[in-house]
Nucleic acid binder design. Structure first.
Lengths: 203, 203, 203, 203
DNA sequence: GATGAATGAGGGTTCATTCAT
DNA sequence: TATGAATGAACCCTCATTCAT
């Protein structure tokens, strides 16, 4: 039976509260005391676990983007056919958004938060995420499934952008429609659009 | 012939300064006095033209998104074949980013700024932009060019997301690669992926 | 007719208020808003003239210690007999305390404020002050008025300590007794104690 | 034979730690947790022995100033010639500084901390210390050794100020020079300066 | 219209103190 | 007794906004 120390629990509660509050008000409009209240702790307690408000965002980002990266890495490193792995990749992404739309919103929005310090920590993890996707496209080209006259990097970026925008739209629309279905539609477009014309069989 | 009053010029200078400063530091980290210095006016002067810092962002957004919408509307309302119009649509979008990357960054990033009041003004104009794209997809389906088993809204959103992400990546990478070329690649993927399989001729 | 800019006046008012408040509550117990209220300005106004609370203390110190140093330098560089200059030196010091006991208290107390950053700025000016006194002792020895078997540095430091303690006691006692008279007594002790025994005439 | 309880030891350790930390960072800049770490106890433990941070300073002050007062009282109440007792008085003072420079710094600096509550407890003990010195001067005057045209209180204060400043300078200079020697020089100045001119024998 | 000094509310952060274990 | 995680009041400083000139 797992025994989590009190502090670990509290750290998690603070992170969860931060996700909720940042999603609701945005990082800059959110007050640290909002997060504290949401987490049910005193303002000062947050500073026992995080160095600053910004560090709280960083912690939130690294913790969760780390998990996502883990998940997609397993898929990318898996054994099945590449087309199936691409599907799984985006399913995983969609499931993550479905599971915690607030978190999806924060990661999705904050990743844009242009310059300054933010990207100093966001970039590496996002870069890793993208590299996994690039690997898949590479693999697809190597397997003869995808056309080779496109840049995997460009394709990966575009696919991510399309899916991310979908997730954002879904979050903003108060989750009124079927994200997974829309994701499938878009994925199909990409797979068709990338299909190697040399392949004997049409879909 | 239109004669712009001196004050209109100043308004433009302030807006241009705001674009530059917001792109560099982000809306929340930018100070009104930064914008004033960049515009070469006094802090107080900004409040002769805008009600608040937020109103400055609104003005910036409406002015520029308005122009973009005008541009794409002309394309959408134009007479050529739908496939050509789709190409023109994204060319216009890319050209806008190429012409003023700072502006592209601000619009691209701030549009995400989930929360609060922001979207109260961003949504309508962005919605209009999206509707133009949806119209094109609709038109393509009606013309038999595109498959009809996909939701135009979903497709439009995905296409926008892909292109927007490309623009963002390009901006963030300090414009080191060819945005227009990458955009063409991605557009081709979408057009192939959307192509009506009933069409006799393959591309 | 001297025209002081408004800002100069305000800076002076803030400095004067800081002297009063720091004297009354001590630097660390004083709140910036106390100084602001005393000066009749808004909290933020202080930061138009000083970078931080600490900078306010630094400004106060440099401005006033600078003036004191100027005053004693003129005396040290003057032409009269050295014994007379020593008297003038301490008279000047006492007059400064009499003129602005609050200021005397702040300078006297804060100069002790041991380590850290404080002395980074206090040391040079206090060092200058001490050097002026050392010069006088040197001069007295060279002139044959003072014994030469004592270190001018040690003597200067002791004389300063004695006078400073007197000033502090006077300030703390709510100025109930005659500082100038006590100062004369002490000065006489030092002058007798330092007197060159070779001198033919006894006092 | 006195058996110190474990708790008394801990109290002593905390006091010693406080001396060290207060000397290094100053009372206001020192954190209670700094003292706790230095003492090797938990933060909360300090509050088992002291009511507050201020009380810790009070305890430190009373304990040590008490010892000093005891020491000088023995000297003052001793039997030897008054001139010798004066020498012993300041030797004791210097030895105290030499033995524990950190403590000297704290007592020396904090005694100035003008304001508030501080002096409520410092004043009595410092007053006692001064009264011992005043007694000596009185005694010297009564014995015909010192001139009687000076106020013993003033003289005592000045002597203390001179010696204290010397100790402070020595502490601040990282103890680079000979405090005891400098003290002797200064004491000699005072003794010469105070010498009763009626005395047949010159020194 | 234009200025920029002044304002003051607001918020991130610190740290003395408490208390459940 | 001893602990140290938790508390929350306090405070320095920022910066959007105002307004006298």
């Amino acid at each position: 039976m797992p025994v989590r120390s009190r502090s670990t629990d509290k750290r998690e509660r603070i992170l969860a509260a931060a996700v909720k509050v940042f999603a609701a008000k945005g990082f800059y409009c959110a007050r640290v005391s909002d997060v504290a209240r949401e987490a049910g702790v005193a303002d000062g307690t947050i500073y026992l676990y995080f160095e600053s408000k910004e560090d709280l965002l960083r912690g939130l980002y690294e913790e969760n983007m780390g998990k996502i990266n883990e998940g997609v890495r397993e898929i990318v490193d898996g054994d099945g056919p590449v087309l199936q792995k691409v599907s799984q990749f985006f399913e995983a992404w969609a499931r993550f958004a479905l599971d915690d739309p607030d978190l999806a919103e924060v990661l999705t929005v904050e990743i844009r938060e242009s310059g300054k310090y933010m990207n100093e920590f966001a970039a590496p993890l996002f870069g890793e995420f993208l590299r996994h996707l690039v690997s898949l496209i590479d693999e697809g080209q190597a397997a003869g499934e995808f056309r080779t006259d496109v840049s995997p990097k460009t394709v990966a970026r575009a696919m991510f952008g399309a899916m991310d925008e979908l997730a954002l739209a879904w979050v903003m629309s108060k989750r009124k429609w079927n994200l997974m279905g829309a994701g499938s539609e878009v994925l199909k477009i990409f797979l068709l659009g990338l299909k190697n014309p040399q392949l004997a069989t049409s879909d």
